[in-house]
């Protein structure tokens, strides 16, 4: 096998950076945005593969980059469509709001406010 031409090295470098960025982002809440670098990684990786293959260059590293970019893309899609986002139970905040409600309903504020509506219409 011959060494890869410069253009292949450039394409693989871009694909690698994009693929890693996509993989990292796919594990964060920005999982849909991770699709952008992941797809770019795959596109550049395929371009690098096509040129390297035609020039009988080395393909091993290109395969690895394509795998990384694909894992990033699949992770994004699985997390987006296969897993449901949930709100965590925040007991402390719930207690705050419950207290606010109890104060209002046990006091005289509501009756005073109802008096303000008397004979309005």
């Amino acid at each position: 096998m011959k060494t890869n031409p410069t253009i292949v090295k450039i394409l693989v470098s871009i694909a690698l950076i994009a693929g890693i960025a996509g993989l990292i982002l796919s594990l964060t809440p920005l999982k849909m945005i991770a699709l952008i670098p992941s797809v770019l990684g795959i596109v550049f990786g395929i371009a690098a593969y096509a040129i390297a293959k035609s020039k009988k260059g080395k393909l091993g590293f290109i395969y690895m980059v394509l795998i990384i970019a694909t894992i990033g893309m699949v992770t994004s899609l699985v997390r987006e469509f296969g897993m449901e986002d949930k709100v965590a139970v925040d007991e402390q905040f719930q207690e705050t709001t419950k207290q606010a409600a109890t104060e209002t309903e046990e006091g005289d504020d509501l009756e005073d406010a109802l008096d303000e509506l008397e004979d309005l219409e």
């Binding site: 965590a88 709001t97 406010a113 109802l114």
Partner: peptide, 25 residues
């Protein structure tokens, strides 16, 4: 309103609005 748990590590937001209204009007 609350941010999803996946966002809480980055930007945790909680909003609660409670309004008492006259039922008829």
């Amino acid at each position: 309103a609350s941010t999803f748990s996946s966002w809480d590590s980055y930007v945790k937001i909680r909003h609660s609005y409670q309004t008492w209204v006259d039922e008829a009007s």
